[in-house]
Amino acid sequence: MNLPKTGRRVLVSGASRGLGRAVAQAFAANGDRVAVHFGSRPEDADVTLASLPGTGHTLIQGDLADARGAAGVAEAAIEGLGGIDVLVNNAAVNVRHPLPETPYEEWVAIWQRHVAVNLLATANLSHLAARRMIDQGGGGRIVNIGSRGAFRGEPDHPAYGATKAAVHALGQSLAVSLAPHGIGVASVAPGFFTTERVAPRLSGPEGDAIRAQSPFGRVATPEEIANAVLWLSSPEAEWSSGTILDLNGASHLRT
C-alpha cells in the first residue's frame, strides 16, 4: 500500500497534555499534520497546538464517551485534514476505585465511564478512521495506547486494567481484519511514565518505590512512548501489525 513516511494526516485523541501532547509533537516534528483532540482543558489543548512545528494542524473538541461525539470528532478531523492516514487512540480515564473501599453505586459509575472512554471510544474511532482509510485506498495505521496494567493487575484501578486488556485484544482482532486493506494495527503497553497527573506521586513518598519497579531505576518519559508510537505508525512497521509492544523498562516481564 502507498502509505507515505511524512505528510500524513494524523488524529491523536486525548492530546491536550501528557502523552497525547508528546505524540502530537512527535508526528508534527516528523512532518505530519495533526488533529489534536481534547475533551476538556481547552487551554492545555491550545498549548499543545501552539507547540507543534509545521502547519496545517487543527484542534478538535468532543466527548468520546458518546458515540455521536466520537463520530463528530472523526468527521471534524477528516474534514480539517482532508482525510486520515493514522489514528492514535490515546484518550483514557483512570480513576482510583479499589473494591473494598468503593460503594457499589460509585463502582458501577466508574466502570461505565472507563468502558465508555477507554474501550468503546477506541472501538468507535477505529471503525470511523478505518472505513475512511479503506475508502481512500492508501492503507493506514491505528495505534492504541494500552497499559502494563493489563498484564500485571491494577488492584486500585481494576476497570482501567480490564479495559486496557480489552483494548489490546481489540487491536489484535482489527489487525487481522484490516490487513487486507493495508491498515496496520498495533498497541503499546507502557509502564509508569512522567505526566502532570502523576508528578505528585513521583515527587512524594512513594516516588522511589515507583522508580525502583524498573531495574533502570527510573520511569519513562512521554517522548520515549511517543517515539515508539511514531515508529509503529510508519510504513516500515507494517510487519509489526498485531503486536502489543511492552514499554516498561523491564518492570514487568510477560511469559
Rank of each mutant, 00 (worst) to 15 (best):
L202T: 10
N94W: 09
G207Q: 04
T48Q: 02
W239N: 13
R41Y: 08
V188S: 07
N144L: 12
D66F: 09
P4Q: 12
A71G: 04
L64G: 12
A28L: 01
A29Q: 12
D208C: 05
A24P: 15
G146M: 11
A65H: 08
A189P: 03
W239H: 15
E206G: 08
I142M: 03
L119P: 08
A166E: 10
L3I: 13
A77T: 05
H97Y: 03
P42L: 12
D46E: 15
A179Y: 00
R41D: 15
V198L: 06
S147K: 14
V34Q: 04
N248S: 03
S233P: 01
A166V: 00
L128K: 08
V185P: 02
A76N: 06
V47A: 15
L178A: 10
A189Y: 06
S126I: 06
T122H: 07
G146F: 11
L253T: 05
A74T: 02
V167A: 08
V143M: 04
G149Y: 06
P42T: 08
V219N: 10
T102G: 13
R152F: 01
H57M: 01
P158M: 08
G139L: 07
A92W: 08
A186R: 14
N94F: 07
A45W: 06
N90W: 05
V108T: 14
P98F: 13
R201A: 07
G204K: 00
A24Y: 13
G20Y: 12
G140N: 10
S240I: 02
W107Q: 04
A26Q: 06
Y104F: 13
N89E: 01
I78F: 09
A24M: 05
L230F: 13
Q112T: 12
A162D: 05
A250I: 12
D85W: 02
V12K: 02
L49N: 09
A166W: 12
K164P: 14
G182V: 04
E206P: 07
S13P: 01
G83M: 04
I110A: 06
I142S: 07
D44M: 09
G39M: 15
W111E: 01
A35W: 15
L247C: 06
V143C: 03
A109K: 00
D135Q: 15
R218T: 14
L178W: 11
P103Y: 03
E223K: 13
S177Q: 14
G14S: 10
A186K: 15
N30C: 04
P100Q: 00
A209G: 11
I183Y: 10
N144S: 11
L232P: 06
Q25C: 00
S51T: 08
L174F: 07
E238P: 00
S126P: 15
N144W: 08
T48K: 00
G191W: 12
A162Q: 07
F192G: 13
S240A: 15
A166R: 14
A159P: 09
E154D: 07
M1F: 02
H37Q: 06
F192Y: 06
I78Q: 14
I210L: 05
H157Q: 11
L52G: 03
A116I: 13
L232S: 04
G72N: 08
G31S: 08
A50S: 14
G161L: 02
S214F: 03
A65Q: 07
A15Y: 06
A129N: 04
N30W: 10
Q25M: 00
A70R: 01
M133D: 14
A74E: 03
S147F: 02
A237T: 05
E238Q: 11
G217V: 11
G191R: 05
R254G: 03
A150V: 00
